[in-house]
Design a protein around this nucleic acid. Structure first.
Lengths: 250, 250
DNA sequence: GCCGAGAATGAATCCATCC
DNA sequence: AGGATGGATTCATTCTCGG
C-alpha cells in the first residue's frame, strides 16, 4: 500500500479505514474525530409532548424511545465497533484510544468503544467556552466529549502524564477553518500526550488533518486514513506548512 | 402526609421517594443528585459501604454513609426509570428534569431518563476545576455530568434563560462539607434557574439539602424527599441557618 | 498582608489475600 | 471463567500555618 503523503514520520493513506487498518500493526494510540451521524431523523417525534403522546403506561414510552426512533444509532454502534475492533487488532498491548463524540451519540459511542473490545476508562470534555448557540429555556450545548480507554491495563510507567479532564478552547472559526467539524490544535495536542513519546498514533478519519499536525508537533509518529481525496490534499498541505513553520523556528 | 420540615415554601418529607412522589402534583422541575451506584471496576468495589468506597484518607470530619448506592447497572436503570416515571406523572406539562451522574453511569442514566418517559435534551458538565484525583497515564476524571430534559416541549417563554453548558466550581471541602457527595451551592443555584421563577422544584434525594437551599435562595418553592433521618436533620438545619442569614441581610 | 513550605484531600483504582 | 475485604498507591490542587 502506498501512502498519499509521507514526510517526517507522518503518513496519510487515501482509502477506506477498514482496508488500511487491516494492513497496520504496532499502533500505540488511536486518536480520532469520526463523523457523528448525529441529529435525529425523527426529531419531531422525539420532541413531542410525551405526556400527550404516551397517554398510557410508561411501558409504551419505553418501546417508542428504544424501538424505531434510533435505527441510525444502531448502525452507528455497529460501524464504530467494527473499525474500533479492527484498530484493536492492529494495536500494541497498552495502546490508548480517544474518540470524539457529541452529547447525543455519547452513550452509543461508549457502547461501541467497549463492543470493539477496548476498556473504557473515562470521558474527557472539550469546553468550547461559550461560543455555542444559546438554548433558550435550557442548558447551552457547549461541549463535545472524548471517550477514552485502553486496549488492556494502563501502563502508566510508559507515559507518566496526567492530562486535564476539561479542556477549554474556542472553536476554529472563519478563514482558518478547513473542515466543518475541525477541532482546535490545542485540543488535539492535548490528546496526543496520551500516546507514549515517540509512539505511533493512528487517525482513521483525518478530515483536515489536525490530529496529524498535533502528532508531529508533539514528537509522535502518525498514520492518517482519509476516504475523500480533497481532504487528503488539505491535510497534506497543512502538514507541509507545519514543517515549514517548524524549520523556521529551528 | 406530614412534612418533617416546613418553612418559607420549602418542605422536607422523611420517607421513600416513591411513596411521596405518588402523592405529589404540580412539579415544575426535578433537580436531584441520586446515589450513583458507581465506583470501581468490580462488583466487590461497588458493594462496599460508601465511606470505604469514596473516602480515602483518614479524614477528621465524620461523614455519614448514604444508602442505595450498590445497585448493578441493570437495576440502576430500572430504579431510575421507575422514580423518573413517578415524577413525570406528578409533573406539569412543561416540566424540566436534571439528574447528576458520573462518567461511568452516564449512558445508563440517559437510558433511564428516557425510559421514564422524559425527553432527553442534553448533558451539562460540572467542572470541578482541577481538585480531582490525578490519573497517571490518562485523562483526569475532573467532571460530573447533568443529564437534563423536559416532560414535553420546552416552554422558553415561561423561563427565557440559557445557563452555561459547563459549570465551573470547586468541590466542597473541609468542615463545610456535610455529605460525601455534596454539590457546590453555586452549581445547584445554576440548575435551579431551569425552573420557572416561583415554580415548584422537587428533589427526591435531598442528602445534605443543597438543592433546597439553592431553590430558596433563587425564589422557587421546593419539596425534598430523604430516606435517612440523619440527612433530614442536616438539611433542615442548613435551611434554618439559611433563613437566619437571609433575615440578617434583610 | 503576603509568601512559601509542608500537610491534607479527593463520588478511585488496583491488587493481594482470605474465605 | 468465585466473591468479599482491606490496604497500597497516586499527585495536582487546596488548605494551613508560620515567618
Amino acid at each position: 500500500m502506498k501512502p498519499y503523503f509521507e514526510a517526517n514520520g507522518i503518513q496519510i493513506y487515501h482509502g477506506d479505514c477498514f482496508e488500511v487498518l487491516h494492513a497496520l500493526r504496532g499502533i500505540d494510540a488511536v486518536i480520532t474525530d469520526p463523523p457523528y451521524s448525529s441529529g435525529g431523523q425523527f426529531r419531531g417525534d422525539r420532541t413531542m409532548n410525551t405526556v400527550t403522546k404516551y397517554v398510557q403506561t410508561n411501558q409504551q414510552a419505553f418501546r417508542a424511545e428504544f424501538g424505531g426512533d434510533n435505527r441510525d444509532q444502531r448502525s452507528y454502534l455497529a460501524w464504530v465497533s467494527l473499525w474500533m475492533s479492527a484498530a484493536l487488532h492492529a494495536s500494541n498491548p497498552n495502546a490508548i484510544a480517544a474518540l470524539f463524540t457529541d452529547w447525543r451519540q455519547l452513550p452509543t459511542t461508549t457502547d461501541a468503544f467497549q463492543a470493539g473490545g477496548w476498556v473504557w476508562r473515562g470521558i474527557g470534555v472539550w469546553d468550547k467556552t461559550g461560543a455555542a448557540r444559546p438554548r433558550l429555556g435550557g442548558i447551552k450545548s457547549q461541549a463535545e466529549y472524548i471517550v477514552w480507554g485502553s486496549s488492556g491495563p494502563l501502563d502508566a510507567d510508559a507515559n507518566p502524564i496526567c492530562i486535564p479532564g476539561v479542556l477549554s478552547a474556542p472553536i476554529v472559526r472563519g478563514t482558518d477553518k478547513e473542515h466543518i467539524a475541525e477541532k482546535p490544535l490545542k485540543v488535539m495536542s492535548w490528546l496526543c500526550e496520551l500516546c507514549r513519546p515517540g509512539g505511533l498514533i493512528v487517525d482513521p478519519f483525518v478530515g483536515s488533518g489536525t490530529t496529524l499536525v498535533a502528532a508531529k508537533k508533539s514528537g509522535r509518529r502518525a498514520i492518517g486514513i482519509e476516504i475523500m481525496e480533497a481532504n487528503c490534499e488539505i491535510a497534506a498541505k497543512r502538514l507541509q506548512q507545519g514543517f515549514l513553520d517548524l524549520s523556521e523556528v529551528a
